[in-house]
Design a protein around this nucleic acid. Structure first.
Length: 497
RNA sequence: GGCCCUAUCGUCUAUCGGUUAGGACGAAAGCUUUUCAAGCUUUAAAGCCGGGUUCGACUCCCGGUAGGGUCACCA
């Protein structure tokens, strides 16, 4: 159909709230497809439901897309040859086509009240059959004066079959076909009508959509058929994505079931390129064993044939892993720049922070898979130890004799060890690397018992049950600070000894 | 209820009639200069069920079953 042309895809959210992973993934595929083929990606806002519109959500959606790294070539905010890109500003177009359809006898005004419709619907439900408006199609519809909804008149009630780029040949029974509303009584178009007109006018060639639209596809097809009778059109191709399920894999992921705002992932400190990578893999794979992709690699590898038919569950553990892999690919400087906003100011304003942070970064990146964990480390005091004197617990320093079975070590022995460690460090009275520190300390630790000496040294330097190894700590803290901490640890051991 | 979509390890998936059914996340175990983390090694773990078609089916067809979607003046 459009094989020779550059593809045009679009993402067309409605501004009814935040954007979650489902929408983001649909946008991502449409974007990647267009980018791969050198085509155009459009952002259009489907704001025809004034009731459900949530103020600020357009901005929120734009921010989400920008964060993810999905730049659009045409659309809201930036304009383009088919502006405007908000449906509420395109009412003239819809009216024009509606008028053409109406004048050709392909659309008619709906005379029923909401109550009448409701009773029809109820009756259908009671009789356990689908509600079909066309069962109640008026013989002599009223004049269409704009105050009544305008419905498409389906003349050919058949089963429709069509091809989907992802699902293959699809079909639907005539039950799926009905006289649906084109223009509402408030003058706004329905989604069913507006998106088709827009896609046509904007030259969209490939529609990436969620799978809930499969069952309304016959209606779209009937509209295209009707439109063909009044004007010249070329139908876009459908690419229907598999659903994203919740973590239990059972229910389709929706806002009601806790689908997170995309920007919540940003707040957690997920890297946008990791999010993109992760999103792409829910329902798509490159057919190779590569799992980690930069945005560019993703675009290059993207192909519709790699998209799944079956739904996939959202697995946040995997997201964490993907994020960690992307974190590894950052330089230390890049890592620090991004991590900074997750470090509270009472730490980042410390003089020692500026001195030591570059040495702490490698330790940090080894321990976290998402920036939020830095904040958690802070809350637990695990980050402070690099910059501020630790508070000691004597028990912790003593721990070796309690934990290592059968080894009796008195606190006076430990004091002796620490004093000797101090003088060992003093043999090189300057800052040393962790390798040098290890060379220095190792023979001594070996002679007195590694487990005890290393544990003692580490807890004396960190004051914590868990921390990086002592040699790394010595490198980070520097000679003077390391010796000072050992001195303090000795004082602690002297207490009521 | 009608119509429609889907079905491989717990999860994401490879396989496009012939494989010891492969990989990744997670899990478990082990190793290392003996905390934690990281790293390395190893292990457990899958074709929904029943019929066909075929020399041969995870793969193709049919029927069940299960899950999902849809039947709005919402998108």
């Amino acid at each position: 159909m459009n094989n020779s042309k550059k593809p045009v895809t679009r993402f067309a959210p409605s501004p009814t709230g935040y954007m979650h992973v489902g929408g983001a993934r649909t946008a991502l595929y449409a974007w990647a497809f267009a980018r791969k083929q050198g085509g155009t990606f459009i952002l259009r806002i489907e704001d025809t439901d004034k009731e459900r519109e949530v103020p600020g959500s357009i901005e929120h959606i734009i921010e989400s897309l920008r964060w993810l790294g999905l730049e659009w070539d045409e659309g809201v905010n930036i304009g383009g040859p088919h502006a405007p890109y908000k449906q509420s500003e395109r009412l003239e177009s819809y009216k024009k086509y509606a008028q053409m359809l109406h004048d050709a006898g392909l659309a008619y005004a709906d005379p029923y009240t909401a109550e009448e419709l409701e009773s029809f619907r109820k009756k259908a439900e009671e009789e356990k059959r689908p509600f079909l408006y066309r069962d109640h199609r008026p013989e002599n519809p009223p004049v269409w004066d704009g105050t009544k909804p305008l419905r498409l008149k389906i003349t050919d009630i058949t089963s429709y079959g069509w091809n989907d780029l992802i699902r293959g040949d699809l079909k639907a029974g005539p039950e799926a076909l009905d006289d649906f509303i084109l223009l509402k009584s408030d003058g706004y178009p329905t989604y069913n009508f507006a998106h088709i007109i827009d896609d046509l006018e904007m030259g969209v060639t490939h529609i990436f959509r969620a799978d809930e639209f499969i069952s309304s596809t016959p209606k779209f097809l009937a509209l295209y058929d009707a439109l063909k009778k009044v004007t010249e059109i070329e139908r876009p191709l459908f690419a229907t994505l598999p659903p994203i399920m919740g973590p239990d894999g059972k229910k389709k992921l929706g806002k009601r079931d806790g689908a997170k705002d995309l920007l919540d992932y940003q707040k957690d400190g997920i890297l946008p390129e990791a999010m993109m990578n992760f999103l792409a893999f829910i329902g798509w794979n490159p057919g190779t064993e590569q799992e980690i992709f930069t945005p560019k690699e993703l675009v290059d590898a993207f192909d519709i044939s790699g998209i799944q038919k079956a739904g996939g569950a959202l697995n946040e553990e995997k997201l964490l892993w993907v994020n960690k892999e992307h974190l590894k690919r950052l330089t230390d400087a890049e890592f620090l720049e991004k991590a900074l906003s997750f470090i509270p100011s009472h730490i980042s304003t410390l003089d020692t922070f500026k001195e030591r942070i570059s040495k702490v970064v490698p330790v940090l990146r080894e321990r976290i898979s998402v920036f939020k964990e830095i904040t958690e480390m802070t809350e637990q005091g695990d980050l402070e130890i690099f910059f501020k004197d630790p508070t000691y617990s004597k028990d912790l320093l003593l721990c070796p004799e309690k934990q290592r079975k059968g080894i009796e070590v008195s606190s006076s022995t430990l004091i002796e060890y620490l004093n000797e460690l101090k003088s060992i460090l003093d043999t090189k009275a300057s800052d040393i690397s962790k390798e040098e520190a290890k060379e220095l300390v190792w023979p001594y630790a070996d002679s007195k018992g590694r487990a005890i000496v290393l544990w003692l040294l580490r807890t004396a330097l960190s004051g914590r049950e868990r921390s990086p190894d002592p040699f790394t700590l010595i490198e980070i803290l520097g000679h003077a600070e390391a010796v000072q901490r050992l001195t303090k640890a000795i004082e602690k051991l002297h207490e009521n000894a």
